[in-house]
Amino acid sequence: MPSETPQAEVGPTGCPHRSGPHSAKGSLEKGSPEDKEAKEPLWIRPDAPSRCTWQLGRPASESPHHHTAPAKSPKILPDILKKIGDTPMVRINKIGKKFGLKCELLAKCEFFNAGGSVKDRISLRMIEDAERDGTLKPGDTIIEPTSGNTGIGLALAAAVRGYRCIIVMPEKMSSEKVDVLRALGAEIVRTPTNARFDSPESHVGVAWRLKNEIPNSHILDQYRNASNPLAHYDTTADEILQQCDGKLDMLVASVGTGGTITGIARKLKEKCPGCRIIGVDPEGSILAEPEELNQTEQTTYEVEGIGYDFIPTVLDRTVVDKWFKSNDEEAFTFARMLIAQEGLLCGGSAGSTVAVAVKAAQELQEGQRCVVILPDSVRNYMTKFLSDRWMLQKGFLKEEDLTEKKPWWWHLRVQELGLSAPLTVLPTITCGHTIEILREKGFDQAPVVDEAGVILGMVTLGNMLSSLLAGKVQPSDQVGKVIYKQFKQIRLTDTLGRLSHILEMDHFALVV
């Protein structure tokens, strides 16, 4: 994948999101292997301009796509893939009243899908469409860049269908997702969380590099694949309309690839034109409109599966009536509230959605109805927002919020430890010299600072030695090549209790 991002070429006709291997024109390309080798690009942008032909009021008969309808489940399912879809609609009884809503608040519980998330729908649909058009064949390999849930859905379907599955996901995604993927037989590649989507090191860039190296491999490409919004247009939206008897006044959905909100909203605009569509985008993402909503100094966020630093091709923002931004604290607070007060075992993005819903639905009156999409299960986040310690460490809970008995030293300040200034190293000294210094002084790690004293990161003896043994660096290389740029900081005025929580999850903390 090139470091400079080429513009994806656009073909003359058809839909841009065809499933299957992508040609340089962004659509299915038939021909000899030699032709494909000559024409197939190194990668295709996940934010390529959409060429979708959908228009409100256009006859369904003019759609270029294969459409399906929700099917009634048999008493005995032939395999677990038949437990994807037909998820329950559940009334939220307490939270709406707590925040003064007059309307009825309903939750579409997508964590009841077989793999635990709304992404099971698009995973199965992308595979079925690729099999139907002859792209996927027995023994082929599926590769997908994902925040985890699409990966789980694909790995689940691949396990049943017999495909090899490789999932490329950023490091910030939970260990629970990784464990589930491994249990399903998927191979996992992790990428830096802070890598831009168009960087060769991003999950998108690495996935395309693997595709170019592995024979008979395919990126189904949830960011561009029409099967993504079509899955929701054909099934999720129809289920909502049936469950609500066609009567709903507002739908609120958090947005990642945009397939969920695009597919549902398009069908609702056709069948229930008075329904307002509300999009939820986390602070630090750029999906919301108008652009002024996205202006923030924050560039990272903890909530998973929603928000991006690019506009995915499948996201149709014209069908969203209003956007709201959400933050991590309210997302996790509301997710825990949904679990504790409503018994809905949902993930953090569901918290984002409901946090926005109780604001947006203030305009609705008694007798009206708001539906929220709860995308995934708490299963993926047992060591994250479900953990009091994690919430404390991230600053989303305060010590006084917890009532468990603490040891005698818990409320003492870090400054009472009488710490001395640490050994520091410059980023320009060599790895070999740094190892000598650390061994001589008896230290395992040291902060790396520039000549102005600005902290650049941390270097550890173990990481340097393993990097040297693996051949990633040489003793003569500058130590700046092996620094940890993500590390926890703590102030002298913070409590030892807070430091204790940090050290339970990290090997060190830097006192500043």
Rank of each mutant, 00 (worst) to 15 (best):
L77T: 01
Q55R: 14
K75H: 04
D179L: 07
K267A: 12
C103L: 04
D238S: 11
E62F: 07
N113C: 09
K94V: 01
H232L: 06
I122F: 04
L184W: 05
D234A: 11
E4S: 11
P33A: 06
K137C: 01
G26Q: 05
D140G: 07
F99E: 14
G134I: 01
I264L: 10
A253Q: 09
A114I: 01
R266F: 08
S227M: 09
S147Y: 01
S23A: 14
P170F: 05
A114S: 14
R190A: 01
E34G: 10
P78S: 12
S217W: 01
V204R: 01
R266E: 06
S254D: 01
T236E: 04
A8Y: 13
I240F: 07
K83F: 09
K271M: 08
L42V: 05
E104S: 11
E37D: 10
G57C: 10
P192F: 07
G153C: 06
L248A: 06
D35F: 01
L154V: 08
F112E: 08
L268F: 15
H66R: 09
P6I: 01
K39M: 14
P200C: 04
C15N: 01
K271G: 05
N113I: 04
K211V: 14
L248M: 12
T260H: 13
D249F: 01
P88S: 11
G274R: 11
Q243D: 14
S73C: 14
P12H: 14
N93D: 11
K25V: 06
G263Y: 03
T193C: 06
K25D: 15
A265M: 08
P215H: 15
R125L: 07
G256N: 04
M89N: 01
K119G: 05
G256T: 01
S73E: 01
P33V: 13
E62S: 14
P74V: 14
A48T: 14
G139S: 09
I127V: 10
G20T: 07
K25G: 07
C275A: 15
F197G: 06
A157C: 09
S19C: 01
G139C: 09
N149V: 01
H22D: 08
T5I: 15
E62Y: 13
V160F: 01
C275I: 13
I122D: 05
T68E: 13
Q222C: 01
N149G: 01
W43P: 09
A155I: 04
S23N: 01
D179A: 08
T87A: 11
G139L: 07
Q7W: 05
V206L: 13
H203R: 03
T150S: 05
D249Y: 01
N216F: 06
M250F: 12
N212H: 01
S175D: 07
V10T: 08
K247M: 12
G205C: 13
E270S: 05
D35G: 11
S174I: 01
I166S: 07
T87P: 11
Q243T: 13
I80A: 06
I76T: 04
P46C: 05
D129N: 15
M250P: 01
I261T: 14
V206A: 08
L210H: 01
E176Y: 01
Q243G: 01
P12R: 13
M250V: 01
I219K: 03
P49G: 01
P21G: 06
T5Y: 12
I95L: 01
R224W: 01
H67C: 09
C244G: 04
T87Q: 05
L77S: 03
A155E: 01
A38L: 14
A69I: 05
L105Y: 04
A155C: 13
Y163V: 01
K36Y: 08
R266C: 07
V10I: 10
E128N: 11
T5M: 01
L184R: 05
K36Q: 13
K75A: 13
A107I: 05
S217M: 01
E110T: 01
E144R: 05
F111W: 01
S227G: 01
E128H: 01
V255I: 06
N212C: 11
Q222G: 01
I142F: 06
I44S: 06
G263W: 04
E34R: 01
E9S: 06
